[in-house]
Write a protein that binds this DNA or RNA. Sequence first.
DNA 1: CGAGCCGTTGAAACTAGTCAATTATTGTGG
DNA 2: CCACAATAATTGACTAGTTTCAACGGCTCG
Lengths: 211, 211
Amino acid sequence: MQTAASITLNSRISAPPRARSQAHIRPVIFHAPDCVIYAQGERTRSLYQIEYGAVRIYRLLADGRRQIVAFHLVGETFGFEINDTHSFYAEAMVNTGLISIERDAGGQLNDRLVGVALKAMVRAQEHLLVVGRQSSLEKIAVFLVDLADREGGADVIDLPMSRIDIGDYLGLTIETVSRTISKLRDMGIVRLRNARSIEIVKPEKLRMLSN
Amino acid sequence: MQTAASITLNSRISAPPRARSQAHIRPVIFHAPDCVIYAQGERTRSLYQIEYGAVRIYRLLADGRRQIVAFHLVGETFGFEINDTHSFYAEAMVNTGLISIERDAGGQLNDRLVGVALKAMVRAQEHLLVVGRQSSLEKIAVFLVDLADREGGADVIDLPMSRIDIGDYLGLTIETVSRTISKLRDMGIVRLRNARSIEIVKPEKLRMLSN
DNA sequence: CGAGCCGTTGAAACTAGTCAATTATTGTGG
DNA sequence: CCACAATAATTGACTAGTTTCAACGGCTCG
């Protein structure tokens, strides 16, 4: 159960990882769930590193549907754009603390920025392989394995996102997402501690499905 | 109808566009249809610019399926990778002439390389939006509109790829690709001069579908 | 405690996939 | 140049899987 946001915020602000050798400490900016971090069309200000929480990156399609192109978790950096204009939305999914990473003075691409861009590209390409797959079982399996790895490789996955988010990420409806997770449960591969906490009982079988 | 490859090759080799101010002229390397330009796992040698022809970029999945992540047409540059190892295959789809673009001496990222990388990233993200769509009609519509734009905006699209390629690109079977194109024909939106040449009769309707 | 949202489950409708047969196109050898 | 073979594309019938519509259960927050 989550405690009050301000407590979490304050407990972290004094010890940011990857602290630069600069005089001032970068402030942690707090975002409540569903709070917009930046919007499509907005001018790019900086990159963001997640201190705690989780973020979804998405685009709204003309017909109102939403395609989530990426989830970002603790420790990850996001916010890279080609132009100086954001072509995606970024929203906090849970209580989230961010530190912003400024560009160079001249607005030039520095090594860090390029690194983030490349990682984003790899993610997008990998995600393409997943979304292009046929079966919902494969999609969900890949999704869970990826999330487990990124959360530190533990057996228990803490989902920061709703079923709607997962559906918009994988190109499925919430019903199919739910049914597929239920199927994995019935197959004895996962166990649901609650809707947002999934225990992987048989990791090797899950990986087989996500092959 | 295509003439002998060598003739096409020779007719182009003397006038490469974007010629650098260097002493020697870069040779145009010829590739026959289905010829591998580079393979997954191979060491990255250079970037490639398409003088004539068309190229598919794809990855083979563990179960033998093939996900095409990009098509490249005349004038476009491809071959960028994060590591010095290719994580995708590149194959010519028709008779194709390439000129190679070397990296800097130190293997550093130069502006050109970064530009290609960014364009590839944008493409991957855009493609994600397409593949994540539900209906085959939308996918095919987006595909055709994109191709028409990239071929110069004319009403007649020359498809350098097979139905299998299109299917592997959009996450559809060849039958569905064929049926969907036939449906567009029955709707009076396109006309098939032959299987590889599609005339867009009602561009505005096609764009509406691809919205 | 009740309202509201999130998630699950069921049944029907529909879309895309699979299997199979037919037609069109391309290439090869006589 | 034509006949034939091989490949590519289309179409049909059927099946499987996902979406849609709907109802219900459970958790959270006022």
